[in-house]
Amino acid sequence: MEKIPVSLDSDALRSFVLGIECGSFALAAQQLCRSTSAVSAQLKKLEQQCGMALVTKRGRHLALTPGGEILLSYARRLLSLNDEAWRAVRGELLQGDVRIGMQEDFGESLMPGILGPFSRQHPSVRISARVDRNQPLLQAMAEQSLDMALLWQGDNLPAQSEVLGQTPLAWIGAQEFDISALLARNDPLPLVMFEAPCLMRSRALCVLEQAELDWRVVFTSHSLSGIWAAVRAGLGITLRSQIGLPAGLHSLNALLPAVGNMGIALWQHNADDAAQQMLAQLTRRALADDIHHNGNGTVSM
């Protein structure tokens, strides 16, 4: 007779997932209204059920073991199905409309992992999505033509917006772009930039001015796809994060001045709305996954 598989404890799975997303099981315990020792006991039980360690300490931070990485993906799917079933039985399937905006850097890389699962779980919710630059999204939020937006953190974000994390910025160029030769000749750096106002453009020019490096804007675009096309063509370099970085481009940070990090923020008009809450949760998870798998920064949620 075939051995019956162990049934993983759903409460322990929830503590495990939340602990990884928070970067701390102590913070997870607070959100779950449990003691830290109770959450630690749940993690130990889960490791016993799986027959292996799931997390390890890396300095001050938690890191997943190979087994933990596998379990995390399954745990999220199991909990999602569990929660969907619970809402369906109680007659609480979500309905209504949500208008969400995303900055272009996040649109292609993060949006499919957010909207796909949400639509499958909540087919009665109508979603309209807008991918645009920061300033138009901020204006749309101010005019309340969007319900929520994932944005770069700038000075003009409202106090109620939630900073989800930080991602390092990078000077980016084509693989064949010879930045060393250009610097050796003291030639002005050819820049591929968005039109002003642009947070990345302002950061790039400020850093270069402080480093006393000459520069010139050789290509200006209205869209991120135009930026990537010009950089791939070798027209110059740009400053972005590595979230959604196209193939054939790479970081030039080793040869150019440090440019620091940029915050990522979520602005919602009605954080108590159930559909927005669910979309916000999926957004946090998608960002945490990208940061964890690609080393694209730190999560502060």
Rank of each mutant, 00 (worst) to 15 (best):
M1K: 06
I4G: 05
L8G: 00
R14H: 11
F16L: 06
F16E: 01
L18S: 02
C22R: 03
A26W: 02
A29Y: 00
Q30H: 12
C33W: 03
S35V: 02
S37V: 14
Q42C: 06
K44T: 14
Q49I: 02
M52R: 15
A53H: 11
L54K: 01
V55A: 02
T56Y: 09
K57T: 08
L64Q: 13
T65V: 06
P66H: 11
E69Y: 03
I70V: 15
L72E: 05
A75R: 04
N82Q: 15
N82T: 13
A85Q: 15
W86K: 15
R87G: 08
E92T: 13
E92Y: 07
L93G: 08
Q95G: 13
D97H: 15
R99T: 05
E104I: 06
D105H: 07
G116N: 15
F118V: 07
R120Y: 09
S124Y: 09
A129Q: 06
R133C: 04
Q139R: 12
A140T: 04
Q144S: 14
Q144C: 07
Q153V: 03
A159D: 12
Q160C: 05
E162R: 09
G165D: 06
G165A: 11
L169P: 01
L169K: 03
G173R: 00
A184P: 02
R185N: 10
P188F: 07
V192E: 08
M193K: 01
R203K: 13
L205N: 00
C206R: 13
L208S: 02
E209S: 10
D214L: 14
D214E: 13
F219Y: 14
F219V: 09
S223A: 11
L224V: 04
S225E: 13
I227H: 00
W228R: 01
V231G: 00
S241G: 10
S241T: 15
Q242S: 10
P246F: 12
H250A: 13
H250T: 09
L255Q: 14
G260S: 11
I264L: 08
A265P: 02
A271F: 01
A271S: 15
L279M: 05
Q281R: 10
Q281C: 04
L282I: 02
T283A: 02
R284T: 01
R285N: 10
A288G: 06
A288L: 06
D289W: 08
H292I: 06
H292V: 00
H293F: 14
S300E: 09
S300N: 14
